[in-house]
Amino acid sequence: MSDMALDVGALSKRFTLHLRGGVSFPVLEDAALVLRPGECVALTGPSGAGKSTLMRCIAGNYGADSGHIRLRHRGAMVDLVTADARLMREIRAESLGHVSQFLRVIPRVPALEVVAEPLRLRGVPRAEAEAQAAALLARLNLPERLHGLPPATFSGGEQQRVNIARGFVAHYPLMLLDEPTASLDPANREVVIALIAEAKARGAAILGIFHDSEVRARVADRLHEVRPLEDAA
């Protein structure tokens, strides 16, 4: 189907802990999910059901054992399960945005550069990338005096806003949001909701985990339940 933004099917993921005598347990079995451009789907299910694992498999952070994760990249549907590191890096730069729960802080790099980096990777000139980054940080109410400082010293909420800005600054056709509003105050939560709405309006597909049921109700077009494997079986 040509109008899919994301097509996950028959996806299995199992963890084998060699340090604990090779104990092995499945987290995803035969998982399936489809996203269309412009829609936002919220993953639901009890904690431990595998929502994060599914999300991280799609992000490429975890490697799936079997099945497919197809997404649109450079005009074609590309399977992430078999993509090599180089293709994955290209996809992350151009086609797949990811706002993780926590910002992986890079020492000594100012917030503005952290946020501008996705644009820089796409070849946007520094001045323009940083102007866009500054505008987005301002919209997320991060005071300008913090823009030049490394986020390592920021509070949890400030770091999360840097993380969100980094995810939204470049316009990806597919975005993964893992608890984007968890540590935000009501005003900033509204900004994030607006950013999601704008992304949808320009045709981006969004897959998110939102524990805040109010946020979820406002942004999600559809819920997708991830069931723990015992229940599913």
């Binding site: 084998t16 802990l17 060699h18 340090l19 991280r56 490429g60 952070n61 975890y62 490697g63 590191a85 994955m88 890096r89």
Partner: peptide, 22 residues
């Protein structure tokens, strides 16, 4: 083992990599 830096470190497959990361 080889692959994307974050995947090798967050989802190591080989026993030795798991040991290294742990």
């Amino acid at each position: 083992e080889e692959g994307l830096a974050d995947r090798v470190l967050d989802d190591p497959q080989h026993p030795y990599t798991q040991l290294l990361v742990a």
